[in-house]
């Protein structure tokens, strides 16, 4: 297992490099982009001067090296809009996004595992059919539209949940935590919907694969109760691939967070990114792409390590 972990760990190097080259290229090779430097404030003649002073006339590889060295020290520059360091802006907004995406992920897992199991055990029954339709609908509904619909139904018509922001403004609340949770319900539910639907299908198929394995038959043959067979023998094995899949869901979750945070005015990095894109705030955009990219690469690394720890077979296969 150590050799596997070592090989997997070494992979992070090239992955990070590709990520950095891509995000640098995204900004620097775009027509009109100035590589994270605001030239709007300048008049025509000064632009060339400014390019020279800021080093934009140097060869791209040199600029890349320079930028890389700053990124390594977590220095993403300052925002064009308010001059605040990008790092601080991101760290300020990060907890809100972690809370939102974390809740959505937990919701997906808590719902998808039992639903997928039921679907698999009652294959081709009306329940399975209904869950299949649910799963397909869940991945076919655009998140922003689902958000608009729940805002109208649960926020406005029924008035059960607040629909904007993360906390109540100008109103006394008994407990801050309860207030935030109250605000969290709708955005997390909408963000978690797609994941719940997709994971339900995956649990169903991996459970169906496991149920025909010899060890399940053996367990049944030796008289283990059905309940134990399903949970201890089948489910435990069926959930193994989920570890990797949860890692692979991270980019989708962050992408979904951009949309959901925008619709619900949730103060996270997704909304920060959308605002930065609209305002052409290049340093913030670059910082966010690198930051979220590094987070997902590390998330996948963790998932793979967890997989290797849980599944002893990985040693032999690789």
């Amino acid at each position: 297992m150590n050799r596997y972990l070592l090989r997997r760990g070494v992979l992070v190097g090239p992955q990070l490099l590709i990520l950095l080259v891509l995000s640098f290229g995204l900004v620097h090779l775009t027509p009109g982009a100035t590589g994270g430097v605001d030239l709007n404030a300048l008049s025509g003649e000064n632009i060339e001067q400014m390019r020279e002073r800021l080093g934009l006339d140097r060869p791209l590889p040199v600029q890349f090296g320079d930028w890389l060295w700053r990124v390594v020290r977590l220095d993403f520059g300052d925002s064009f809009i308010d001059g605040q360091p990008v790092r601080e802006k991101i760290l300020d907004r990060l907890p809100a996004t972690m809370l939102l995406t974390g809740s959505a992920l937990v919701m997906s897992l808590v719902l998808a595992i039992p639903l997928g199991m039921v679907s698999s055990l009652r294959r081709n029954s009306p329940i399975d059919y209904g869950l299949t339709v649910f799963a397909f609908s869940g991945v076919s509904i655009p998140a922003f539209w689902a958000a608009i619909v729940v805002i109208i139904v649960f926020g406005v018509e029924l008035g059960w949940f607040p629909v904007q922001g993360m906390e109540s403004v100008g109103r006394d609340v008994e407990s801050h935590a309860v207030d935030v949770l109250h605000h969290l319900v709708l955005p997390a539910a909408v963000l978690g919907l797609e994941g719940t639907a997709a994971l339900t299908r995956l649990v169903r198929s991996s459970m169906s694969d496991v149920l025909v394995e010899d060890y399940v038959r053996t367990a049944r043959a030796k008289g283990v109760t059905e309940r134990l067979v399903l949970i201890r023998h089948a489910l435990k094995n069926a959930l193994l691939p989920m570890v990797t899949l949860v890692g692979l869901r991270l980019p989708t979750l962050i992408g979904g967070a951009v949309v959901i945070e925008t619709v619900f005015a949730w103060p996270g990095i997704g909304r920060l990114g959308w605002e930065a894109v609209l305002q052409r705030d290049f340093p913030v955009v670059m910082g966010l792409v690198v930051f979220t990219g590094v987070l997902t690469i590390l998330g996948n690394l963790l998932a793979d390590i967890a997989y290797a720890v849980i599944d002893p077979r990985i040693n032999l296969e690789r």
Partner: peptide
């Protein structure tokens, strides 16, 4: 596959 592609899509569309 591990990149938060929607961010990149947004940024590329804007730029």
């Amino acid at each position: 596959l591990a990149m938060p592609t929607f961010f990149i899509v947004l940024a590329a569309a804007a730029f």
